[in-house]
Design a binder for these strands. Structure first.
Lengths: 178, 178
DNA sequence: CAAAATAACTCATCGATGTTGAATTCGAGG
DNA sequence: CCTCGAATTCAACATCGATGAGTTATTTTG
């Protein structure tokens, strides 16, 4: 399991091979499939435990609701830029097209897992839609900055990005909906 | 080539097989690789021609700059919801993690290919960053709505989504940058 | 027009991958 | 010690992308 977590974090979903994980673990490849069914099941088991973005929920109680946008965005970017959590987020994001489990994780982030509880915690109207919009926005930013590394966004100072986009996150959470 | 375009559009990058394309085309698989080098080269050749989002550039000259956000978002959503162009956009978006070529196409959309010329055409300051932010936002929305099909965003009325998010797109193009 | 050169195309094959089912080893309980 | 079930391995299959040599077709040329 530790070998799987490391391999998925370092090499992503597609380039991680069951045979490789089995070799690192000093075990036969078939043993892994006996336990986890298939490669997707292994990924799910390896990445499901303690999802990094779950910690974002605590932000609701650490400050004013009016500053939640900035704080949420800052902490989210920090998660991406921390080696350990960043590698796992990258694995999930990049595997989202090849692995149903990774895809479900990203979808869950935008609704029931993280963003929806967060939107509900601040008592927002249209919590489901606000959760989706906030999640989609954050996902887009992370994809451009950390996955595709589009310039100049990728090398923009983190605090400057918070200053530029914090208000948009805030708008999605508490602002006018059209 | 036509077989490749149809297969990539219908089945995406990973599930499309060179052998399958060759069978539809009534040809040996090796012939395809002889022409396009590898699977990624085939994808590039099949999807590079006439990228659907290129047409978004014309919107600059079809109305006031102050309404460009809404018009851009509306037309972008229409592209995703049109069967032909939507299938191609889906293929590129879903293949972005497995295919370097698809990844480059998405990155190009957010900068030199579409969003940057558009930002430059309206004479925006910090055109590169605005292009990235607008592109990232649109990509995030499309990923959530059309790729992951997150609810309720996925089934939200298109015009309602334009009403809700048009102002954000507009802000990224011409609004305050922090 | 025939021969030579180039392009188009096929064939057999390799190495790697996910996956499967049977076989084997291991570890506890009676 | 023996048995039974879990843990683990073994050997193999089907499929995939890719390679390189060989073969056919087409064009160029003398």
């Amino acid at each position: 399991m530790r070998a799987a977590q490391e391999s998925f974090a370092e090499r992503g979903y597609t380039t991680t091979t069951i045979r490789g994980v089995a070799a690192v673990a000093g075990v036969d490849p078939a043993l892994i499939l006996q336990f986890y069914g298939n490669k997707d099941g292994l990924f799910d088991a390896a990445l499901r435990v303690d999802p990094p973005t779950r910690s974002l929920l605590a932000l609701v109680f650490e400050g004013e609701t009016g500053t939640l946008g900035k704080r949420l965005l800052r902490r989210y970017l920090e998660l991406w830029e921390t080696p350990d959590t960043g590698a796992r987020l990258l694995a999930v994001a990049r595997g989202a097209s090849a692995s149903p489990s990774a895809s479900a994780m990203v979808a869950a982030f935008m609704s029931e897992e993280v963003m929806l509880p967060l939107a509900r915690a601040i008592g927002a109207d249209h919590a489901e839609l606000r959760a989706n919009l906030t999640g989609a926005h954050l996902l887009g930013l992370a994809t451009a900055r950390y996955v595709l590394r589009v310039q100049p966004l990728a090398s923009l100072d983190r605090e400057r990005l918070v200053a530029v986009q914090g208000a948009v996150v805030q708008r999605h959470l508490t602002g006018d909906l059209g």
